[in-house]
Write a protein that binds this DNA or RNA. Structure first.
Lengths: 255, 255
DNA sequence: TAGTGGTCTAGACCACATA
DNA sequence: ATGTGGTCTAGACCACTAT
């Protein structure tokens, strides 16, 4: 009521986001309608509408006129986070994903990981190195560091069934991501792991993901230059119509 | 009035966007206030508010409570378009930009450019090759094709003062962009033009830009792997607060 | 003091889906 | 027929900024 506090539409949004992230509302579940929110929380319909409309704009829910509002499913959610799951990308292309774990241990932070995760050098981190295969062809070497406090059970997961990124998302919604893309020659170990030609460069993505306003994971992702590319598409929010191009061949989306 | 038509808040948005793109409203100019829109167009204040609020969310304008609404300046506008101008990036880093033109001519479309621009192979295109220098160090080789109908006077520009991308934006606002990023070894000409080491890979960005719902320009951008990287940051629309990291060293932003 | 954006209300009409 | 989202109105109170 008093305008000094957090606006009511914002409180509504956070309430619903909380219900989603705790799992109380699952993908494709129905979210309370505007009228139900009016009745249950006492706000006016315009306020309920704004909350749900913004959640829709932000990708958390899908609204269908005449039907209802529903929690966005996993694909849409990963779009919101802009952290694509390589297993999903591969299956979108109709191929099989598998993973070879190279290393799984607690290791001291190196200088770069320490800086990215805001911890001291040599602070203990959970480290996982694995190769993602697309129909048995290696496509990504993932070298990941995770803050132990964030996901103590990280290394105990069976990463044949879930990617590290997907597991971390399940622990807590990842709120922010920063990535850097560059081209570099691989060292010999990386080249061998990815079954690359001599003189073939890597597309290297380093990504830091945030949860609870803190960096919780840092990953270096190495991809064979001849078998991998990133693509992104931008259209201004207003212009929905124009050009809908189909997804292309063997590439990983990014945006 | 009749709800079958385009919503009034949307008409208002398009009206203001048109005033901006025609130059009638320039960056930092004051945009009509909510009350002025109420008086001049007859909508209610909530409707005017929604139009201006969405324009703010989309980056077209900046709103300051108690002060007014203003056209976003160039930096924000280029963010909206997600087509960064390398000259601006370089000057943001406090360095000087210059350009060496390698080629400027009308040439027949090759297979890739033809596909990207939706024209036949060998259709006449305006082609420009130039090297962008950051403080006299080559940082990008731009190989660009432009649809003659879109900008017949393209090759007559003086690209010492304006980048090709900026010039094209000035011809007509670019509405959409698609880019693909990959790592590849340069051919010898490219390596020499960019003053690269032997065995140094390129970060290659291919970008197609749309205007009027049509692809109008296609560019291949080659960057030395050792001196260039792309970075992107994502935060969900709601979470403004959390982590504002400073801009890093010698890199080109992308998002 | 007057103007601005930020929010909120309690109604209203509409097109559309579902039952 | 009912419920849904989509939009719109004509007021209102607030905090803030500028004069």
């Amino acid at each position: 009521m008093t305008a000094a506090a957090i606006p009511r539409y914002r409180q509504l949004k956070e309430l619903i986001i909380r219900r989603i992230s705790t799992g109380e509302l699952r993908p494709r579940d129905r979210v309370p309608s505007e009228n139900e929110l009016v009745d249950s929380t006492g706000v006016s319909r315009m306020t309920a509408n704004r909350a749900l409309r913004e959640l829709n704009d932000e990708g958390y829910v899908d609204r269908v006129a005449g039907v209802g509002t529903f929690v966005a499913d996993f694909k849409a959610a990963s779009h919101v986070l802009e952290v694509r799951n390589i297993a999903d990308e591969i299956s979108l292309r109709g191929h099989d994903h598998s993973a070879n774990i190279l290393l799984s241990s607690e290791t001291p932070a190196d200088a770069i990981a320490a800086a990215a995760l805001h911890v001291n050098i040599n602070a203990p981190l959970l480290r996982l190195r694995l190769v993602h295969m697309e129909s048995d062809i290696p496509i990504q070497l993932e070298d990941r560091f995770v803050l132990p406090e964030f996901a103590p059970e990280f290394l105990q997961q069976n990463f044949a069934g879930i990617t590290p990124s997907a597991f971390l998302s399940s622990v807590s919604p990842l709120q922010e991501a920063e990535h850097v893309v560059r081209a570099a020659m691989p060292d010999e170990e990386t080249r061998n792991s990815l079954n690359m030609e001599d003189n073939e460069p890597c597309l290297v993505v380093t990504r830091t993901t945030w949860a609870h306003g803190q960096p919780v994971s840092f990953a270096r992702l190495y991809h064979p230059g001849s078998r991998f590319e990133l693509s992104g598409h931008y259209a201004p929010p207003g212009a929905e119509a124009a050009s809908r191009r189909p997804e292309h061949g063997a590439r990983q989306n990014e945006s």
